[in-house]
Amino acid sequence: MARIFFPTSLQQLTGGTEECEIEASTVRELFARLEERFPGIREQVASAAVAIDGDVVPGALLEPLDPDSEVHFLPAISGG
């Protein structure tokens, strides 16, 4: 089960939950599972940068998740 961490800004939607474990083989599936558990969250996470195992993954929707993956949602960054 992938371990999902919620930033403070999403914790209103998760009822204060800071992290949870979810069975998902891709980020798309993860978003669907998250939406089932925390309605309204998909729109928020879809606009965030997704970090999988410490690495921000651009265009992450189809990215595979390992059973022990860690997923974080961050503000989007690029740089100068």
Partner: peptide
Amino acid sequence: RAVYGPKYR
């Protein structure tokens, strides 16, 4: 774990 969440590589 970085202060903003993920672990450093």
